[in-house]
Nucleic acid binder design. Structure first.
Length: 296
DNA sequence: AAAAAGCGCAACCGCGAGCCG
DNA sequence: ACGGCTCGCGGTTGCGCTTTT
């Protein structure tokens, strides 16, 4: 016997929002600010559940939302972060402040997943790993993805073998080790709750990843590099290397170490730590390896 | 021109986390 | 310590538009 869904109440309207409803919601939030969503339907007379109001605000009405096509740079960020974090859309969205998690999720599911799959199939086909052999000729792949991508794929595939798992699973496993060995967000939970949710997600992610990276880099970094990544199927491995440039390998390790030596995980230094981590992320995203994504 | 299929996206749903009495 | 409640997240659905046949 669970809690009844909030949206099953009698008289609750579902479906697309009308401009009038949008106006009411925006006016209310302009006056009272976002939050306390359960009060919104009661105070505005909207026949919507609190959840629906929150969703409409965060995904559509919130100021600063960028709509329309994703830029190649945004695509790269999403692909990298999805590889690193898995389907943690809120965390990914925190690095693209103008995009909503819903938008990113939709874009991933409708565009990027397909793109990457096509690329993987092409590589698998050319390497002879796939039953879809023959679906793509070498020339077709070369035309689509370019010589360098092919060479890189060959090199990387020849370096590894062993069992298959999805790239997301492998990265997740890798991250799990870091996550489980470090405390969750060190933010005051009361304060964190009051913050904007997207910022929370970002902070939580960055705090975690800072500690995790520090642990990883100080501890068994080599072990992780050698063992965890060896579990990836050759074709997946090629895709990851070409698409994701995993930060464990590619980030400037000395900068990361010095960063954590200076900050000693002290949350008082958090803003500086965040800025430094963001700049490292930017560096990682802009690394030359990511250019190969453009071949997609 | 019309029907069918495909696609994109807004919105819904269920669940887990965390707060509070 | 426990249960009720709210909030936020990720997966999924379904509608409307576009493209293909």
């Amino acid at each position: 016997m669970g809690r009844p869904p909030c949206c099953n109440k009698l008289g609750i309207k579902k479906g697309p929002w009308t401009p009038e409803e949008d106006n009411i919601l925006v006016s209310y939030i302009q006056e009272h600010g976002p939050g306390n969503w359960r009060l919104v339907p009661a105070n505005t007379g909207l026949m919507r559940c609190s959840k629906s109001c929150r969703l409409r605000w965060t995904n559509y009405l919130r100021p600063g939302i960028k709509r329309g096509n994703f830029t190649p740079h945004e695509e790269r960020i999403i692909i990298h972060l999805q590889a690193l974090l898995g389907n943690r859309w809120a965390a990914i969205a925190s690095f693209l402040p103008q995009r909503t998690d819903n938008d990113i999720k939709n874009y991933w599911n409708t565009h990027l997943k397909k793109k990457i799959k096509t690329y993987q199939v092409a590589i698998e086909s050319s390497m002879g790993f796939s039953d879809a052999g023959g679906a793509f000729s070498h020339d077709e792949i070369q035309r689509s993805f370019g010589d360098e991508a092919i060479k890189a794929a060959h090199n990387l595939i020849s370096q590894s073998s062993t069992t298959y798992a999805s790239s997301a699973e492998n990265i997740s496993k890798l991250l799990e080790g870091w996550m489980s060995s470090s405390p969750k967000s060190t933010l005051n939970p009361v304060h964190a709750r009051q913050e904007n949710s997207r910022q929370d997600a970002k902070e939580s992610f960055i705090v975690n990843i800072n500690d995790d990276f520090a642990e990883n880099l100080r501890g068994n970094q080599m072990k992780i590099e050698q063992e965890s990544f060896a579990q990836i199927h050759p074709a997946e491995w090629s895709s990851q290397q070409l698409s994701f440039e995993n930060p464990v390998i590619e980030w400037d390790k000395s900068s990361v170490n010095s960063l954590f030596d200076e900050n000693k995980h002290d949350t008082c230094n958090y803003p500086e730590q965040q800025v430094a981590t963001e700049s490292l992320l930017d560096k990682w995203l802009l690394d030359e390896g990511t250019e190969q994504l453009d071949a997609l």
